[in-house]
Amino acid sequence: MRRPLQYLALVAYMVFLAFPLVWLLSTALKTSQEMASLTPTWIPRHPVLTNFADAFTEQDIVGSALRSLVVAVATSALTIVLALPAAYAMARYRSLVNRLAVGWVLVSQVFPFILIIIPLFMVLRSLDLVNTLPGLMIVHVTFVLPFALWMLQGYVRAVPRELEEAAAVDGAGRVRAIVRVVAPLLAPGVVATALFAFISSWNEFLFALVVLKDPGVATLPLTLVKFTGAEGVVRLGPLAAASLLATIPSLVFFAIIQRRLRSGLMAGAVKG
């Protein structure tokens, strides 16, 4: 008797989780005539891909996607370059910074964004970085860094120190030991962290909203939000198509790193 009830509950959960996604896909495949009809159906009567083509030509979706890409790639590269040496030091030497970094990750959760974003906006304004992509990039790097640092130092810790020392004893020299022995073992962790930084930046909306006022430099989330104007239901098809396309990079990268993110979450929350 229990099993059937459990399956019923599981199906209910899956319906709740999946139906908005199915609806998004369905809307993306509908013609504008069908969107205007008064009886929406789950399955498009005449599925078309024109909305995806429209999404590319309208509203500067391509331009803003490129800007998002530039910011996200620069953010992940810069995050790794800045965080890797610090993560190495955190993992190998005892220092006060470890605790400070952890403390900062927690503190930054509790403090509402408004307390940081107003002064940060003033700082960027005085540096003439408002309405520029480097301005947004700086903000993204700053806010990804603490967590990236934490992820990376975990990966460094997982590389046995003895390996590094053995290579050094064999006459490889310390720097070469790190490059030859530690780096290859660390590579998967670095990739995971870089992808995490990419997703965070690619998805980010709030800071972009404040830093990029000029529509000419808008990133993808900003352009998507402005997409729905007064034109009504006719435009919903291309909007749905563009939304789907905007989700693909995050979804793919997330699929790659989800195991690592999950184990990180578990390690922290459970063994606390």
Binding site: P20, I199, P221, L224, T228, A240, A246, T247, L251
Partner: peptide, 13 residues
Amino acid sequence: AMPPVVIGLMWRL
């Protein structure tokens, strides 16, 4: 994994 903006737009649909 989804961008919050897309989640908002999706539910608006």
